[in-house]
C-alpha cells in the first residue's frame, strides 16, 4: 500500500493552488494512493542503468530566426481579461514578492 498521507495530499493541493474539503481530501488520498500503488510496480524495477526519455522524438536543435512579427492588438488581448484597467490586466493585491 502506498504511504501517501492526508497531510501530503493537503500540501500538494496547496502547491497546485486547489482547496479541498475534508471529504475530498479523504477521497483523493484513497484514490491517489490506489494509482501510486500501481506505480510501485515501477519503483520496484532496477533501472539505474537506463537513461530517461523525456520526449519521444529527437529532432536536434530547433531554432527560429530573430525576426519581429506582428502580435495581437491590445484590445484583442484584454477582451478576454476577467478585469482590466489602464491597458493592463488587473488582479487583487499580491502578497509577497516573486521568488
Amino acid at each position: 500500500m502506498s504511504d501517501l498521507t492526508r497531510d501530503e495530499v493537503a500540501h500538494v493541493a496547496h502547491l497546485a493552488r486547489l482547496r479541498l474539503s475534508d471529504e475530498e481530501l479523504d477521497r483523493f488520498t484513497g484514490q491517489l494512493a490506489q494509482v501510486l500503488d500501481h506505480a510501485n510496480d515501477l519503483r520496484a524495477l532496477d533501472l539505474s542503468n537506463v537513461a530517461p526519455t523525456a520526449h519521444p522524438v529527437d529532432l536536434g536543435t530547433v531554432l527560429r530566426r530573430d525576426e519581429v512579427s506582428a502580435g495581437l492588438g491590445r484590445d484583442a488581448v484584454l477582451a478576454s481579461a476577467p478585469a482590466a484597467e489602464d491597458g493592463r490586466f488587473a488582479v487583487p493585491r499580491v502578497l509577497g514578492d516573486e521568488p
Binding site: L15, L32, V35, L42, A51, P56
Partner: peptide, 25 residues
C-alpha cells in the same frame, strides 16, 4: 494532484524520474 506529487521534491526520482526510464524501456 497526482502530477504535482510525482514532480515534487523527494518524490521526483521515485515516480516521475522512474516513469521516464520505463518509457525508455
Amino acid at each position: 494532484m497526482l502530477g504535482t506529487y510525482a514532480l515534487s521534491a523527494g518524490y521526483y526520482d521515485a515516480y516521475y524520474g522512474q516513469a521516464l526510464k520505463v518509457r525508455t524501456v
